[in-house]
């Protein structure tokens, strides 16, 4: 029981990833594929963010008076959430949006040429 409860969040992320993944590979509509891709990526980001989570910790901003120097040793690590995954995810979000943008540009072009965004119809026109 502990196995499920303590890692329940991971289960949900993974299910979410798989929803996105399924849309990416099984949906025939190109826009749907991109929506799936967004869900997939967001779920990964959620996964990363929860890697950094610590029970009872606060947001990763140093609590101190303005410009007061605090010696490194006196900062309690467990008090702050791990900032590294957050940094990585800022990059990942931007990457995700960029890919979405390019993919949507492609979809627009595809629609201009084939007048549809359904994969099977396009393949029929291509063959």
């Amino acid at each position: 029981m502990d196995f499920i409860v303590s890692k329940f969040n991971y289960w949900i992320y993974i299910i979410m990833m798989m929803i996105g993944f399924y849309a990416m590979i099984a949906k025939r509509n190109l826009v749907k594929k991109i929506i799936g891709m967004n869900i997939f990526q967001t779920a990964i980001i959620l996964f990363y963010v929860s890697i950094g989570a610590k029970k009872g910790a606060t947001i990763p901003i140093l609590e101190a008076a303005h410009h007061a120097k605090i010696p490194p040793e006196s900062i309690e690590v467990a008090k702050y959430i791990n900032p590294l995954p957050h940094v990585l995810m800022l990059t990942a979000i931007v990457v995700g949006v960029s890919v979405t943008g390019v993919a949507l540009a492609l979809i627009i072009l595809i629609y201009r040429r084939y007048h549809t965004v359904e994969e099977d119809e396009i393949l029929r026109q291509l063959s």
Partner: peptide
């Protein structure tokens, strides 16, 4: 979950 920067960006 405490990831404010990520949340704002998202």
């Amino acid at each position: 979950m405490g990831a404010v920067d990520v949340a704002i960006t998202e």
